[in-house]
């Protein structure tokens, strides 16, 4: 028997197992069917929802998450390079960065509500705020940890400071920058979904989950949760794919 041939199917085992236990649990009524609908009911709700309101909410959440990550990247990457290329500058700001990086972004909601009012700006800016610090921290460390030999090699070949920065440091920091971007987009999604639940939102996946719960429409609630999960997974996969394509030397 050649078991190796089936190794690529291994990731499916967990999915099938989970669906099997879920089906049995609902069929045998181990759990109140009102609290846990059957997989079929859930996926029906997901299918029809994605062609209707849930699909609209999904797109809204994607837009907000991407916007906040984009804004964060545009601000944090250049800033991170500047901070990282001067270790003394970074050390002077390290405490401030670490402090706000450790502050739950959700604690900033009221402040941002005051600043930007109830609307997309608030959600996007809070999420961007959280993502900025994560990306900034990673980019700065990527630049600071550039291999000394590589910088020396460029210098000994006659590269100017600017050349070293653009030809070596920037590329050296790319693997770490992508770590920051992946963490940043995950955090942005978390913040966006929470913001959609609680700060006067009319749409988005967070709103969808919250509304379904209020209406006690459990299949729809589970469907929205799955949609959020799929979105998080897809965003991570997207960044990983881009990283493998553009930072092919990472970890080698």
């Amino acid at each position: 028997m050649n078991m190796k041939r089936f190794d690529s199917l291994l990731p499916i085992v967990g999915v099938v197992g989970l669906l099997a236990i879920w089906s049995v649990a609902t069929a045998a009524q181990w759990v109140d069917p009102v609290l846990l609908p059957s997989p079929i009911a859930t996926f029906k709700a997901l299918w029809s929802g994605m062609h209707g309101v849930l699909g609209f909410d999904f797109v809204k959440t994607v837009y907000r998450t991407i916007m906040s990550t984009l804004i964060a990247a545009v601000i944090a990457i250049p800033l991170g390079i500047v901070l990282g290329s001067s270790e003394r500058l970074y050390r002077s700001l390290e405490f401030v960065i670490d402090f706000f990086r450790s502050t739950p972004a959700s604690a900033m909601f009221p402040l941002f509500l005051v600043l930007f009012g109830v609307g997309d700006e608030t959600k996007i800016s809070v999420a961007a705020f959280g993502a900025i610090l994560v990306i900034l921290f990673n980019v700065a460390y990527g630049v600071m940890n550039a291999r000394k030999t590589r910088l020396l090699a460029a210098k000994v070949m006659g590269a100017s400071r600017m050349r070293v920065l653009f030809d070596v440091m920037l590329l050296e920091s790319l693997p770490q920058t992508f770590v920051g971007l992946r963490n940043g987009v995950s955090l942005a999604l978390v913040i966006i979904v929470v913001a959609e639940m609680f700060i006067g939102s009319q749409d988005g996946l967070g709103h969808s989950v919250f509304e379904a719960q209020q209406l006690f429409d459990m299949p729809r609630m589970y469907a929205a949760i799955f949609a959020a999960g799929a979105l998080g997974y897809a965003l991570n996969l997207l960044f990983l794919t881009v990283e493998r394509r553009f930072v092919h030397w990472s970890g080698k």
Partner: peptide, 27 residues
């Protein structure tokens, strides 16, 4: 100048050919 640590002295984002040609680019 040739470094002991070739792994860190070469640029992994460039093909070998471009690594060799890089000093000319600087010039």
């Amino acid at each position: 100048y040739v470094f002991q640590n070739y792994r860190e002295a070469l640029f992994p984002w460039m093909r070998a050919f471009d690594n060799i040609a890089y000093p000319l680019k600087l010039m």
